[in-house]
Each structure stands twice: as structure tokens, then as C-alpha cells.
């Protein structure tokens, strides 16, 4: 498990964790590696983006590989937010010149994961994803 402080200077370090995991556990050209990186990035950027609003200061990150499944776990402090239960209205908005950009991150996580779970325990947000 690796702990990352949530501030704007640490996001690149946090990205490096998944790159290293893919290099050591997966074939980088494989679809599984793509999905792991995608889900990791979408959840991590979400945690960073909302850290100020939720009062989050750190995230514990764990990546594991078991047979053909990869597991991504994030545990972070701050206010409660269940990403498995959040639907961004922009996803279903039809295309037009006024369509708002963004909102697809958690949607992609739900589409490309085998299991996407959230628990709130002991004042911490715990996200568990199987890919």
C-alpha cells in the first residue's frame, strides 16, 4: 500500500504508481493494462479534484494482480462520497454546440470494471474495483 498526500504537487507521483504496476504485472499493450490505467486515472483524478471540497488530505492506494483480474483499492479521508452511486447528467445530454464537456470519468469506470464497490467505514471512503 502506498500513501499519497492530496495536493497538486503529488498527482504525477500517483500516476507513476499505475505505470509501474502495469510494467511489472501486466503486458503494457494488453487491454487489461489499458482498463487498469483508465479506471485508476478516473478515480484518482476524481479524488484529487474533490479533495478540497471534501476536506481530504491523503489517499492510500493498493494495486494487486490475481490470475487474470487486477484489483484497485483507494482509501481516503474527508467527507462521504459514493462514486458508485453518482450519475453525471452530462453523460446523457444529446450532442449540441451547447453540450457541456466532462462528466464521463465515473461513467467509464462503471463500464470498464467487473466490480465497482464503495464503503464508508471509520470515517474513510473505501473504493474497491476489480478489472
Amino acid at each position: 500500500m502506498i500513501t499519497i498526500k492530496l495536493d497538486s504537487t503529488t498527482i504525477k507521483d500517483a500516476f507513476k504508481i499505475v505505470d509501474d504496476f502495469c510494467k511489472s504485472h501486466l503486458k503494457e499493450a494488453d487491454e487489461l493494462c489499458f482498463k487498469v490505467k483508465l479506471i485508476y486515472e478516473e478515480l484518482l483524478t476524481n479524488i484529487f479534484r474533490h479533495s478540497r471540497k471534501l476536506g481530504s488530505t491523503f489517499v492510500n492506494i493498493e494495486l494487486k494482480s490475481k490470475n487474470s483480474t487486477s484489483v484497485i483499492e483507494f482509501v481516503y479521508d474527508g467527507g462521504e462520497f459514493d462514486p458508485t452511486n453518482y450519475k453525471d447528467k452530462r453523460v446523457d445530454e444529446p450532442f449540441s454546440e451547447k453540450k457541456e464537456e466532462g462528466g464521463f470519468g465515473l461513467f467509464l469506470v462503471s463500464k470498464f470494471s467487473k466490480k465497482f464497490e464503495y464503503k464508508r467505514t471509520e470515517g474513510l471512503n473505501k473504493i474497491y474495483v476489480e478489472v
Binding site: 499493450a29 489499458f34 490505467k37 483508465l38 486515472e41 478516473e42 483524478t45 450532442f95 449540441s96 454546440e97 453540450k99 464537456e101 466532462g102 464521463f104 470519468g105 461513467f107 467509464l108
Partner: peptide, 17 residues
């Protein structure tokens, strides 16, 4: 291009608009 995330999708929407 090896990889795209939702941040890249925003570029596609923006260009399409």
C-alpha cells in the same frame, strides 16, 4: 495513440462543437 481517458474525450467534444 495508445491511450485515452475522459480528459481526452473532452477534447473530442470541444472540437466537435
Amino acid at each position: 495513440l495508445d491511450y485515452i481517458s475522459s480528459a481526452g474525450l473532452q477534447i473530442l467534444i470541444s472540437a466537435a462543437k
